[in-house]
Design a protein around this nucleic acid. Sequence first.
DNA 1: ACTATCAATCGAACCGGTTCGACGAGGAAG
DNA 2: CTTCCTCGTCGAACCGGTTCGATTGATAGT
Lengths: 333, 333
Amino acid sequence: MTTIQDVARHAGVSRSTVSYALSGKRTISRETRERIEAAIRELGFTPNAGARALATSQTLVIGLFVHFFQDEFSPAMLQYVLPISDAAREAGYDILMVTETDGPKALERISNSNMVDGVILLNVAHEDPRLPVMRKIHQPGSMVGLPKNTEGFDVFDLDFEESGRVLVDHLAERGHREIVLITPRKDVYDRGGAYAWRFQNAALQRAAQYGIRVHWFHGETQQPAVNQQIGEILDAGLGTAMIVHNDAVIAALPAVLHERGIRVPDDLSVVGIFSEDFGRLFNLPYTAVETSPDKLGRRAVQALVQQMLDESGSTPNRVELIAPQIVDRGSTK
Amino acid sequence: MTTIQDVARHAGVSRSTVSYALSGKRTISRETRERIEAAIRELGFTPNAGARALATSQTLVIGLFVHFFQDEFSPAMLQYVLPISDAAREAGYDILMVTETDGPKALERISNSNMVDGVILLNVAHEDPRLPVMRKIHQPGSMVGLPKNTEGFDVFDLDFEESGRVLVDHLAERGHREIVLITPRKDVYDRGGAYAWRFQNAALQRAAQYGIRVHWFHGETQQPAVNQQIGEILDAGLGTAMIVHNDAVIAALPAVLHERGIRVPDDLSVVGIFSEDFGRLFNLPYTAVETSPDKLGRRAVQALVQQMLDESGSTPNRVELIAPQIVDRGSTK
DNA sequence: ACTATCAATCGAACCGGTTCGACGAGGAAG
DNA sequence: CTTCCTCGTCGAACCGGTTCGATTGATAGT
């Protein structure tokens, strides 16, 4: 490994001069700078990250804490991770991805050992056990998913309440008076996935305002239970439209509908809530609220970077609930 | 931040004593050790990763280099990443996940700055541009995906040639004499995804031995092209069985078959090659070769860890092609 | 009683960067 | 011709760990 010392010797200057030439924090004569640059090129020097981190207390690494639940539909997660990774790199940061089951412990370990400059939490629950730890550590953080207490963090999420209302509005406008609502599994609620009941409550409330009758089910997440459940619900013939807030259910829906010869939107109107990528992956022909995981991920990174650069030490508290946008794929009438 | 110095002061010993108490590399009296442990607990000390890395030239971080191609079916990738992350943690390592488009440059940057102790490459192509860099850097590496020249690396992959043969055998045994073969897109071949033509060549050759007639197509990867292509192929009525080596096609297959009223296996036998998770995700009822991404990922980590612990400096060259296993889901007759 | 051995600890050097203060040379101002 | 800056550079200290002698006191061996 070539060190800054090697470069210095080769260019006939001191270590500090090389350092200043690199950082530009002091003026260096054109002549020496060129000599140093030549030496660097010739020797192939790259600063040692550990040494630099030690000296500057900066690692240029962001910790990304992801928690995969077995009862959750996994492919969705990657839609957040990739844009985050890309955005981070654009800002000059690398990503340390942590998937440990014991999130709080992992967070504490990584933070205390100073491996990262900042932290992004994905899939944050209403009372997320990682949040108390977040409050103790000294690195800034931002998150995707709206917790109960957002104090001190930058939080990004889809506005699930508005999403619920928008979808109900969409159906109400088209004259539907009796509908089916399929939400995430009970486990998600118990675990505190707030997006589940935020969406659901808002939808139910708005439906009540319209006087729309709602048949509400917790959707399954594993086959073959999913198909069976959908089949039963369809056979019961409850209402003229369906709102699906459940990845596994919506992904399985086309097959079940087809099997039963139910045409969309002629026999049944269907709306959902999923990302464009997700829709493309499963070839879903349903009008839906776009969940914009890429946008959320990127904004989380932006906010974090801003915090990391900010020296004022002011605790941030930006809560950004992005407005739902309906993508009309013609599955309602 | 509490440093080792703070701990030492608090326990009334020198820094080195604390260090030895922690590492156990020298004998420390029970009494002082307990005093030190108490101090650590009280002050909440965690060693600074940068400082430790500087002193020991060890980061306890593994670089995971993933390349996402837009023409590849993305959810598959996560199946590798998660097991790798888990296995790494079990061995005491964290994961720096790098998704940069310019893989070689990123690899060089991360390696030269000494941010990682070792490197895992995913989705390695036949002539992968990252390999020349891998040969220059001083960290050990292992990979998933079989390149042309494996010298100096530990390589893990499914035995795609045997997989191709096994599937053809499976159909031949059942008396099929004319079959359809759907492989990855042309781009995958051009890019050097060797698994594509390794599978295909072996399958074609084996089929020729049996005197089986094969109609071979490059499958599409984006909707709606996928469905249309499948439809056309089915309408042409070529053969009594189908071998699908294409994630997008196999995922879309149930819907298209159903639409056309083609029953499996009564009207058509279908076999594929995908992981159990993938099959569950898309609810695929097809007999298939299991691709075992979790096993491959874990073995890559194991091999890498072994290399990192090995001080002998011997260049490894383990090439492990895991034997394909057919999971019979009853889609052939 | 005298030396060899060993357990327990300390001080100093080192890893590879960054940064602060100092210093000499040259130019401008008085 | 001083005096004072500014520019360009250097040396030393520092970041927070690890590790290599060296030292001390106690124990064992003869």
